[in-house]
Design a protein around this nucleic acid. Structure first.
Lengths: 256, 256
DNA sequence: GAAATAGTGTCTTTAAGACAGTATGTG
DNA sequence: CACATACTGTCTTAAAGACACTATTTC
């Protein structure tokens, strides 16, 4: 029923409908990130592949896009199913479509990145233990140079086993870090990596973790407060062994 | 081993290969932009649709992605076929996948934006006269607020006929402008909207056209020259009726 | 020489960095 | 009271804006 007349020409001569063109599979993959200032590193959630291709290796949580499902909804569903998390900040990252990125056939993936605070991230990882793993990202470049990052397993001992990611997922993770660093330069997305209320110090720690470099404390305070995006809650920390700091809250709700 | 208790589940139970999931059509659409400082506006190339859906309306140049064709290659092919242009700066913009964006069925489009200098743009539009039109973009928002832009036909009289774009192409154009403005804040992409050698004044005019606001001349010169991205050619303008300015050249070749 | 734009030097304004000093909690 | 961190005030430094002035071309 589909002769596929393709010696060289791409577009068929007569049939012009959607059916005239072979269709690729389309998936979404999500880089779910949390900042871990204690280790000066970003962590990402990875899942073990149980089947070929790349069976046994680690991959980003992902899945096929339903034929009637919006892309954002697919990404959200993947996070819900694989990480059991809802209501996370999420943005489209980039679409990867190299013809040979999946040995099974043509698969185009729309990559997203998602940000959660460390507590939710750890809880999610613990609940899905066995199916998922926490990967630490060692970023080998500065600023927004870009490029792949080293992905290593996070052991309590501190030992760092390299994790081989399936497909082009290493590249995707690298782009997520690059994008996040870029955003941090002009908007304090760090909010999304913290619980609803937080101190300025915590926000600075998160920013430093993402950017991979120390920031000036005074200037950071001034800049963030001047942006007007934070509202003081009037409350303070209470479980610290020193003067407790004011707690702030993200002033405007950010979409998607 | 994995019961999958999902009454509302979409994925088939047994078949796990690519064939198990219905596939959407995938296209690329390109926002081909040129800056026209004389009109203080960006111009985009649009093509008239000859067939439904949206027959008779204007659309971005686009086409289906070949089953073995990289996304970038498809975008490049579209620009070559529809605008007869090669070697243009081009970057992926965003992927639009609302299930109802095309009445024929599920079509996901990977949008790109491309930049050319005004001369090449006009020549391309003239050569394909009848098939394509030049649309002027009236950006109704400042900075990087974002949102759709008014797309009007460019008449020599100055009259502005609104152009109704097909599909969600108005949204795509708006996002292209937003992205371009954003990039201009930290990198002088304006190069790509000018011929190989140009004066600082021309570059500033282009930046002002894209950003939609005037820039400080002194500060612009300092900033651009300090960036080190420009090389002086040693040559000067020769067809102007005043003191000719030094011509500069983009120092590093930018990929894709 | 007049007109027009290119290019330079310098003052002012503003944001970032440095750092000293005060405030407020725990033990 | 010692200690730790939060917070404030001020000086210094670097970048951006403003603006006066000089330079070089065409007519």
């Amino acid at each position: 029923m589909k002769p596929k007349p393709k010696p060289k020409a791409k577009a068929p001569a007569k049939r012009r409908g959607l059916g005239a063109y072979p269709r690729p599979s389309v998936t979404v993959d999500v880089v779910l990130l949390a900042a871990v200032p204690a280790r000066s590193a970003l962590h990402a959630l990875v899942v073990r592949r149980s089947e070929p291709p790349f069976g046994g290796r680690w991959a980003l949580p992902g899945g096929f896009v339903g034929i009637d499902e919006p892309l954002d909804a697919a990404a959200r569903r993947v996070v819900r199913e694989k990480a059991r998390l809802a209501d996370v900040f999420m943005e489209q990252l980039y679409t990867f479509g190299s013809p040979r990125r999946d040995p099974r056939g043509r698969v185009i993936t729309v990559a997203y990145y998602a940000l959660v605070d460390e507590a939710r991230f750890r809880q999610a990882a613990a609940e899905a233990k066995g199916e998922v793993a926490v990967a630490r990202l060692d970023v080998g470049w500065e600023g927004e140079t870009g490029g792949p990052v080293d992905v290593v397993s996070e052991h309590e001992s501190g030992a760092a086993l390299p994790l081989l990611l399936a497909f082009d997922h290493g590249e995707i993770v690298g782009m997520a870090v690059k994008r996040l660093r870029g955003k941090l330069d002009y908007t304090p997305v760090g909010f999304q990596l913290l619980p609803p209320s937080f101190t300025l110090r915590q926000l600075q720690d998160v920013h430093e973790t993402v950017l991979g470099r120390p920031l000036n404390k005074d200037s950071f305070r001034r800049r963030i407060l001047a942006s007007g995006l934070l509202d003081a809650t009037g409350e303070r920390q209470d479980d610290v062994d020193h003067r407790p700091a004011e707690l702030y809250r993200f002033g405007r709700q950010s979409a998607t």
